[in-house]
Design a protein around this nucleic acid. Structure first.
Lengths: 163, 163
DNA sequence: GTTGAAGTTAAAGTGAACTTGAGCGCAAGG
DNA sequence: CCTTGCGCTCAAGTTCACTTTAACTTCAAC
């Protein structure tokens, strides 16, 4: 690998649109790799741009860093990834998007029938029903999957209420 | 208001499904109100249940506390809100959901045409294009609205890159 | 009267995905 | 040579929507 072909941090930030801090973070998380110059500066191979593109796209679809890491891990490490490789690992995104769309449709459905009637009752209204507390637990389709719930870091499971 | 009609914290947690800490938080944020007993315990009017229902539903749609506060602020404060009031303030949620659905459809479309071809190019691929850096800023439909972008607290605007 | 459950406060903690800041070294251009 | 700016590391800060903890007080039942 001719050092001529390696990119500086500045080049990567301007070509990828990511901040330098984000790029360092991705490196620290093992999503991308960097060589070092003799004086310790990062030097990137061109393929990081493609990886960064994938990272942005995946993150737009809602994947976490953890998930992105594991998807990137499926790339071949003995050769340069080709179209088919990228295609393979992003294939099931369509399914995830379909699920998200379906969830929103369900929510809208509930909105029409429930708020449309002005009830918003905690007891009978599935829309505002906590789902675990009043209804049977885990029964029936959740209105929203976790990926679309505004991710409250500390609210890992549904609120269990006071013991 | 007969104190007989007021509810204790325990009653509200079990009827609403929210944890006591969440209820105190909502009170501190001004989303709900509480009276106090002579010894300092909270006493809630029945209408908080309806408000809490609204809060859960709104939060499922993806509204922030800030937005919920302002929506609740539109309720009449001189009389008990009625069906029409609740209906009015939740009316445009359907539109928001439609926008979210449309955004996901666009994303899926992009996925089909862009990742389908294996390109993922930072230059030509709208799917992974940062949108502000490479493309004209603010032009064209965003693939994802802010409500569906995984909300990175510190990333308020799109990354501006290195000056 | 004693006990345990339920309530109170204020302050600190949580998690993700980064950003910001302090305090450095190094590089390139005039 | 000197400045300007890019780059480095490591630690700490940020946001949101709560939860958890510590240290009490009060209520209800026995």
């Amino acid at each position: 690998m001719d050092p001529r072909d390696l990119m500086s941090m500045g080049e990567v930030t301007s070509r990828s649109g990511f901040a330098a801090s984000a790029i360092r973070y991705y490196e620290s998380e093992g999503l991308i790799e960097a060589h070092r110059s003799s004086t310790g500066q990062r030097r990137f191979e061109r393929n990081v741009l493609r990886r960064l593109g994938f990272i942005r796209a995946a993150s737009n679809v809602g994947l976490s860093i953890e998930e992105i890491r594991s998807e990137l891990g499926r790339l071949p490490d003995n050769r340069t990834p080709n179209k088919a490789d990228w295609h393979r690992i992003s294939k099931h995104w369509a399914r995830r998007l379909d699920e998200q769309i379906a969830a929103l449709e369900r929510l809208k459905q509930g909105l029409d029938s429930c708020i449309g009637c002005g009830c918003l009752s905690l007891r009978s209204c599935a829309f505002s029903n906590p789902g675990d507390v009043v209804g049977a637990r885990g029964q029936g389709a959740q209105l929203l999957p976790d990926t679309l719930r505004r991710p409250h870091p500390t609210r890992r499971a549904a609120p269990t209420g006071p013991a």
